[in-house]
């Protein structure tokens, strides 16, 4: 890709790794809460009241994370990866970033179109970003479900790929994003 990838870094920067693992936990929790709440009667309220503010927090963090990534130098891919694998890795990364940005926006948009107040905490709530239209809500609501499954599948692929690298190829791929500091060789 760019010259930024050809540094002698062994790992992503500390802030990138922190944001990665923080968001990984949040997004996984979010996917679980999302699929559980739509099938739940008794826990619906509790889950919804976590889902909405957590979604907005993810939206804020993904913007910070994207900017942070643009400003940081990146470690190179391991030598084991073919150009096709590198392309797949970059494409899946782009897909994940896009989904993490679009999914909360679709959620905010659909609640806006339905004129549900989006309460974050106490009396703090978000303004609507779309006009009141139940048809628009219906489309965005379906989109939100579709994107959630797509995001989940992208996560499974990402998880599978890193397990493959860590356990089969053993090329140090995981150490690039390890939460702990890996000493330069």
């Amino acid at each position: 890709m760019s010259a930024r990838t050809t540094t002698d870094r062994q790992q992503f920067t500390g802030s990138m790794r922190f944001l990665h693992w923080l968001m990984a936990a949040m997004v996984l929790a979010m996917l679980g809460i999302g699929i559980a709440m739509v099938a739940s009667l008794g826990d619906y309220r509790r889950l919804v009241s976590i889902h909405r503010p957590l979604g907005i927090l993810i939206l804020i963090l993904v913007v910070i994370r994207f900017v942070n990534r643009r400003l940081s130098s990146l470690p190179p891919f391991p030598a084991t990866m073919s150009p096709q694998e590198r392309f797949a890795a970059r494409a899946s990364e782009a897909l994940l970033y896009t989904l993490l940005l679009v999914q909360p926006l679709v959620g905010w948009g659909m609640l806006s179109a339905a004129r549900y107040p989006i309460v974050l905490f106490g009396s703090l709530h978000l303004f609507p970003i779309l006009p009141h239209s139940v048809m628009l809500y219906a489309v965005l609501r379906r989109t939100h479900t579709f994107l959630a499954y797509l995001l989940f599948l992208a996560f499974v692929a990402h998880f599978g790929a890193i397990l493959f690298h860590a356990l089969i190829v053993r090329d140090g791929m995981l150490s690039r994003m390890a939460p702990w500091r890996v000493r330069a060789r």
Partner: peptide, 21 residues
């Protein structure tokens, strides 16, 4: 490095090493 590194380099994918550690 991965275990399949030898296989890949002997397969002749010459540009493989261009961005690598």
């Amino acid at each position: 490095l991965g275990a399949n590194e030898d296989a890949k380099t002997t397969n002749g994918s010459g540009e493989l090493l261009s961005e690598t550690a």
